[in-house]
Design a protein around this nucleic acid. Structure first.
Length: 571
RNA sequence: GCGCUUGUAGCUCAGCUGGAUAGAGCAACGGCCUUCUAAGCCGUGGGCCACAGGUUCGAUUCCUGUCAGGCGCACCA
């Protein structure tokens, strides 16, 4: 179905064309929601934006435009306000019908240029390390961005760019040969590998020759040494098995797992190209790209003195690979903001190489404790599984208190969804590009703008609809949505705002805009729910409110799904 | 030193490509369950939107500068 803004804009376009023939209104003509119901439901700033170019008074223009709305079926009345706003009050009939058909037909997003593939890089854990809460944000935000772009009709590929080729493998191979505890390794493979890694870091201070040994093992691995390759493969496979469990638990999925190793074969070619084209040069035996002073970027090392490749090399190879295998619409990288410079470097270099596809880095603030950084090396991490367990445990306790009558197995299921939803939403509802101080109580809050609040609103509606069905009052196709109370109307207007909220979230790569929208919708619904009875009303009003409730529940479910948060029918 | 980033209520944060008296949640206080799930709703108090200039009909939003925090700055990812 056509977005309400599009309907209103095309109507406005007709009016404006008639009033100001020949005027170039590109980029000036748009309709947006209002901040307050007294300013109508939607508004346009066209008069204010165009007055200067037309040499007119904006208020007079606004009056001319408003006057043309007299016989519109969509707009009941148009008012001029302030310095030249035209405030549009939708007709109840149009609004009711729009809300009634919302969600039953797919929204029409064909006006968005959606050609090609959107590639999203996210999660990207380092092999042989258990996932901890530092991996949460990239995983959850990346997954949501993927879902949001899919919803808009893009073809999306989610790629887990695994850290499966870094320096840690040299250290792991050395440690594996020297200190591995076989029994522990069989019991908890990644746990033991982590221990070895920490051991390596601990000993390096006293035995600096270990570092050199690790460098050599890494080089051997990168040159294809059989034994080192076998070990490497073992580490990767075991890690992926563990990650698979946690991704399933979090309802996160990927289309490809092309880690850094996947691009290894391309890296010499990348280096050669960069040198041949004069983009890179040899400096202190390394291959380095330097930037212009105005770019304010530090030199970027493409190949180390010892011949090994780096993160930047694999990212360039990755872009090249994608160019050959996809029709790239854009590439989206979701990582913490410490990598901003890295991606600026990679993007600049790739452009000089002629790899000009749009690329965007979506940075977020990394998470730390009040007293310092997480570090596998130091051992002060909170494992992702432990965080989820704690969340589920707390959710279980609340269910026990609020809804003890639920069957035990359903309590478990609901606790899992509520707990995990709360954790994911805690990250998705924020837009902060600054450090996040980890705090159990904030991460696992169930009040206010949280997943449990939204899920609760959904469950309430479902419960009401079940009760209606039990009473023989099923939803009716021929019901109309009536606006007897301002609360109903405010709620209906919010339902119409959903698709644009999704578009804005996509444009800004900010899932929190959907979270904000859903929270607002749910607050509006709960006010309605609290003030206006549904099942006690006479039929016409009962079916109207039931249908409105149903439509709200669908938006909540769809919206939460875009955030990767599941709903439950009761809680 | 250079660069990036952040600064909004006591705390945690929204604020939609510049829009009308700046919004939530938590915390505090006062109400609402014989009525559809009180994980809820209604109300009260709480703000020179870090500071100073500039652009604009209009600035929390854009530009410049200052101050403060965080992060990055050749062979980690």
């Amino acid at each position: 179905m056509t977005l309400i803004e599009k309907t209103l804009e095309s109507e406005l376009l007709g009016i404006v064309k008639e009033l100001y023939p020949g005027f170039d209104m590109s980029g000036k003509l748009f309709v947006q929601k209002t901040g307050d119901a007294k300013f109508g439901d939607y508004q346009t700033n066209f008069a204010m934006v165009s007055a200067k170019a037309l040499g007119r008074n904006p208020v007079e223009m606004a009056k001319e435009i408003a006057a043309k709305y007299i016989r519109s079926g969509t707009v009941e009345r148009a008012e001029v306000a302030g310095p030249g706003f035209v405030n549009l009050f939708l007709s109840d009939k149009f609004l009711g019908e729009y809300v009634k058909s919302a969600n039953t037909r797919a929204y029409d997003f064909t006006f968005i240029p959606r050609r090609g593939d959107v590639l999203v890089d996210y999660s990207s854990p380092n092999i042989a390390k258990r996932m901890h809460i530092g991996h949460l944000r990239s995983t959850v935000i990346g997954d949501a961005i993927k879902r949001i772009y899919k919803f808009l009709g893009y073809k999306v590929i989610g790629d887990n760019h695994l850290g499966d080729w870094g320096t840690q493998f040299g250290k792991l191979i050395v440690g594996y040969r020297k200190w591995l505890n076989r029994a522990d390794y069989e019991k908890s493979p990644i746990g033991e590998l982590e221990r070895i890694y920490v051991e390596f870091e601990r000993r390096t201070e006293a035995e600096p020759e270990l570092a050199e040994e690790a460098r050599q093992e890494l080089k051997k691995l990168q040159d294809g040494d059989t034994e080192n390759t076998r070990l490497w493969k073992e580490f990767v496979d075991m890690s992926l098995t563990e990650y698979g469990k946690i991704y399933r638990r979090m309802n996160v999925s990927f289309d490809t797992f092309h880690g850094e190793s996947f691009y290894h074969g391309r890296m010499p070619g990348i280096v050669k190209t960069l040198l041949d084209k004069g983009i890179a040069q040899i400096s202190e035996d390394a291959v380095v790209v330097f930037f212009e002073e105005a770019e304010h970027l530090p030199p970027c090392i493409i190949r180390k003195q010892d011949g090994a490749f780096l993160y930047a090399t694999s990212d360039l190879a990755c872009i090249q690979y994608r160019r050959e295998h996809y029709e790239i619409n854009r590439i989206i990288y979701v990582t913490d903001d410490r990598q901003i410079d890295h991606f600026r470097q990679v993007f600049r270099i790739s452009e000089r190489m002629g790899l000009n596809e749009p690329k965007v880095h979506v940075p977020f603030g990394f998470m730390k404790f009040a007293d310092g950084m997480f570090s596998t090396r130091k051992g002060n991490v909170i494992l992702l599984d432990d965080l989820l367990d704690e969340a589920v445990k707390r959710a279980r306790a609340v269910i026990e208190e609020k809804n003890p009558g639920l069957p035990e197995d359903e309590k478990d299921l609901v606790a899992e969804k509520v707990g995990i939803g709360a954790v994911k939403y805690a990250d998705l509802s924020k837009n902060r590009v600054s450090v996040v101080i980890f705090d159990w109580d904030k991460m696992l809050s169930f009040d206010g703008n949280t997943a449990p609040y939204l899920m609760y609103t959904y469950a309430r509606i479902r419960s009401m609809i079940r009760k209606a069905e039990d009473a023989g009052k099923n939803l009716r196709d021929d019901a109309s949505i009536l606006f007897e109370d301002a609360l109903e109307r405010a709620l209906a207007v919010r339902v119409t705002q959903f698709p644009v909220a999704v578009m804005k979230a996509a444009e800004a790569y900010s899932p929190n805009l959907i979270a904000d929208y859903l929270f607002d919708l749910c607050q509006s619904y709960n006010s309605f729910y609290n003030a206006l009875p549904v099942l006690k009303e006479k039929d016409e009003l009962l079916y109207s409110r039931l249908l409105l409730s149903e439509q709200v529940s669908r938006v909540i479910k769809t919206g939460l799904d875009l955030l990767g948060v599941e709903t439950v029918e009761r809680m």
